[in-house]
Structures are given as C-alpha cells and as structure tokens.
Amino acid sequence: MSKTSGSSASGTTPKMKGDKVKVFYGEKQALQDVDLEIKPNEVTALIGPSGCGKSTFLRCLNRMNDVIDICRVEGKITLDNEDIYSSDLDPVQLRARVGMVFQKPNPFPKSIYDNIAYGPRIHGTASSKAEIDEIVETSLTKAGLWEEVKDRLMEPGTGLSGGQQQRLCIARAIAVNPEVILMDEPCSALDPIATAKIEELIDELRENFTIVIVTHSMQQAARVSQRTAFFHLGELVEVGDTEQIFTNPTDSRTQGYITGRFG
C-alpha cells in the first residue's frame, strides 16, 4: 500500500483547520469559537462529556449539518486551505473527500457488494464491472472484512453482525477514497472484540487517510490517536499530543475529566 494523501508532503501543514467555528441549532449555541487543526495522516480523537458538541464539530467538517434545517455554522473551516463553506465548494464533492462513519452501523438494505459499489457508482470513479469488482475487493480487504464476506457478497449487508456491519460501513467509506475519514463513536454499539478489530483497523488506515474520531472511551483515545482534543460545554478546552493530554493536561477541566471526576 502506498500513501495517497496528496497534500501530506509537508508534515506540519494541517489537513483541515477550524477557525472560530460557532454552531447554532435554532437559537441554541452548541459550539463556541472552536479553533482546531487536524494534521494529515494522524488520528485525532475528540473527547468530552456527552452533549459537549463533539459530534456537532465532526459533522461540520463534511457539512453533514447542512442536512439539519435549523443548524447554522459560523466561522471558517478549511480543507487543504480551501474554505469548505464557501459557495463555490460543493458539499457533495466535499463529502467525497471527507467521508464519514456513524455511531450506529447503517448499511444500506442492499447486498454487501452494492453497499461498497454505491460510492464509486454515484461518483463515477469506476465504470466497468471489473473496476467495481476491484474496488469492492480492495476496500473490503483494507477494512479487514474480505476474508469473512468474500463468499457472500450478494447477501444483504444488514445480515452481518454489528462489528462486521461497522467494518462494512468503513469499507464503504474507503471505497470513495476520501482524504479524511470522520468517525462518530464508531465502536459505541459494538462488543469489545469487534471494538478491538476496528481499533486495529483505524491504526492501519492512518497510513492512507487522515482520521478524526469521536470517542467516549478515554482508553480508546489513548490507544488509537496521536492527537486529542478535549471539548467541554461547546468549547474546545485543550488540544495536544495524546501523550501530553493524558499524562500532563494543562487545564484543570481536562484533568478532571480524564481522572473521571465528571463526564
């Protein structure tokens, strides 16, 4: 496997960058002035107590919030220095570059094959059957699911186990070959063994993709991520190397959270 992330040449330029991001649901403000940089080919973990706005921030990164009528985003978010909320950037195109995996596995009620082929088909990245076959195999392999499902590609994706479904969803996201993959608590609906598999997978994927993961579990953040951002009540409290955040946080709120005093 080779690196494909086009702009990863300079290690320090951020892949994505949030600048004074504010989000409102109707009158209610869910995020206040979040400044956050996402480094390429790293796993960035977003942690914090429930309702602090982690998912909200994550959904800003590929404009999934556009789907919610009452949601309003202010501030600036860039992908490779391009403003993703500018009017000449197309959300559909953006989401092909910034893919997403959700909390609950949500395979389409189609065959495993068609689940994976869906993205390439709509984006027209593959036209012939052979090309699609290839993408399906590559993606499933990368997601570590190929061996388990290669004999039943035409069976419905909803028939898989929870962990397999989630890996199918990851494979589905990979099939579009995005630059960034957003994961919103991808393991919260899974058992420990399935969780371990996904964590392993995330670590492998880092080689080719930039990953942002929201997680509830601090152990998970510590295991898979290189950088960690701590959110609290709609604010980004602290961000830094995972090591540093977990061993030597600067903010007392972070300290409180990771030592389990609240959250």
């Binding site: 494909t4 197309d90 195109q93 390439p120 984006h123 990245t125 195999e137 590559t138 070959n177 995005p178």
Partner: peptide, 22 residues
C-alpha cells in the same frame, strides 16, 4: 496526477473535483 501515475491497479481513484460529471 499522483493517482494516475500509480502502476498499482488495486488503487482506488478519487472522484475528480467539479467537472462534467458533477
């Protein structure tokens, strides 16, 4: 450009930004 120069056929192409198809 990077993609197309790859000899590795198992690689997945990225959708081209903008363009006719969009």
């Amino acid at each position: 450009a990077i993609m197309n120069s790859k000899p590795d056929t198992a690689e997945i192409r990225r959708p081209s930004p903008g363009g006719e198809r969009l």
